[in-house]
Amino acid sequence: MAMAGSGLKTVHLNLPASTADLRKLEIGSVAYLTGRVFTAREGVYKHAIEDGAGMPASRETLGLANFHCSPAASINADGSHTVGAVTATASFRFARWLDGWLKLSGCNIIIGKGGMTSDIYRNAFVPNNAVYLTTVGYGTGALLGRGIKRVSGVYWAKELGLAQAAWVLEVENFGPFLVESDLDGKSLFERENEKIAPGLAKLYEGTRPATLRRYGETDNKTDEVI
């Protein structure tokens, strides 16, 4: 299901993806996924890595594609699941766990919002042959919700609550996503920031720095807040 007239390269991947599959992804490509994806964010990372709990289930059970997401979903009285919309949460907050996480989980696809810095890609993703896909919008939650065919398990719901639990999702043509970082660790967002940077000085003409400064403040507009 490619967006009409976008002109962007589109790649469909079956999961789990091999390193050879991931080589087809270039930054700025559109990707759709079919197979198994699981949600995990700070709650799972902290419990798995810092509390030493290990993974909530086997690699076969969880798959190798980790989605930084809490679904808008509920567990019904009969134990079945209702999944509405799903959207990623901002990934930069999880960067400090990533190296340990990729090794522990074996994941080679991280799906999230907004990406991380290219430092993290080079130091944690590239050595583990992992790529980063970003959700689009943000907030194509309904389109992504359509791509979920079934919930095959929910882990650590009791320990972490529904929002932080690990939801295992069977997906089909799940997307769209944009490739933010490829196997070389390049970053689409950083490329775009560089394109925008040259115009900023002119934009700031006719403005004045605040009289009252803040500790730790930068006035370098090429810096990022992450």
Binding site: M3, L143, G145
Partner: peptide, 24 residues
């Protein structure tokens, strides 16, 4: 591309009666 995807997303939300964004 992003805006086009969002416009399709609003339609999908209305058709399916599901939340437009997963972060509600």
């Amino acid at each position: 591309f992003v805006i086009q995807a969002m416009l399709e997303n609003y339609e999908a939300a209305k058709e399916d009666r599901r939340a437009m964004c997963g972060d509600t």
